[in-house]
Design a protein around this nucleic acid. Structure first.
Lengths: 117, 117
DNA sequence: TCCATATTTCAACGATTATTGAAATGAAGC
DNA sequence: GCTTCATTTCAATAATCGTTGAAATATGGA
């Protein structure tokens, strides 16, 4: 992961509603959640939420797919893992064994192909 | 870690110079680096850097101590670990064993007591 | 086709952010 | 005490950000 991408991902997460959305999606797993379900859960206006989804998507943190009238958002775990790895990279110069690289999250169920990024 | 603290930490890291500073400090370990050394390494004006140090410090990501005329900044690994844990918390609803909580970085050498936060 | 539902688009506004230049502070050495 | 070095403070500026309201788009069902 490049520094530019890491800054983009961090900036995307550095906002109350977006962090709330993201954590919801991380916990939801590969199946994701509909925009409406997230709006209900967080009590955020749908148009505001669209703005935030765009940021998360532009940062590569989530994917979207359409399901009927609903848009289903899901976390991209590869990006999450890459970001964590970037942050903790070569921690303490690699000196301590306790500063080992962090574990990765590899959900087993296949994720649906994302259509338009 | 509370959502507010996580947003603060992420916002502190969501900037090119600050992310550069932070990664330098993570790799430097508990001994830290002087403000001047960091300014040289990154090619950032000292006053600009002070502004960014303040953000990192306010977010609890780094500590400072004075050493002669130099200010020595060092990463706070507890905050780093807490942030990573917060991001990946209950990943996939805890379903997959591969989504286990991430490893923590616990540098072995004692860190100098930080004076004024 | 017409209507309801789900979500997105657009323009506008106030608030926050990063960088700058000049001046101030604090510590060390002569 | 004066000078130098290391870093911080302050005010000003341009750029970016989050929320809002109203209107548009897309899908599914009667």
């Amino acid at each position: 992961m490049e520094q530019t991408d890491a800054v983009a991902a961090l900036a995307a997460l550095a906002q109350n509603h977006r962090l709330g959305v993201y954590r919801l999606l991380v916990q939801a797993g590969p199946d994701g959640l509909s925009a409406g379900a997230i709006a209900d859960e967080l009590g955020v206006a749908p148009n505001t939420l669209t703005f935030h989804f765009d940021r998360l998507r532009a940062a590569g943190l989530v994917t979207v797919r359409r399901d009927g009238r609903s848009m289903i958002y899901a976390a991209r775990f590869e990006t999450m893992n890459a970001l964590v790895a970037y942050l903790t990279d070569n921690c303490c110069g690699g000196a301590s064994e306790q500063c080992a690289p962090v574990a990765a999250c590899k959900p087993s169920r296949k994720r649906a192909k994302q259509p338009a990024s």
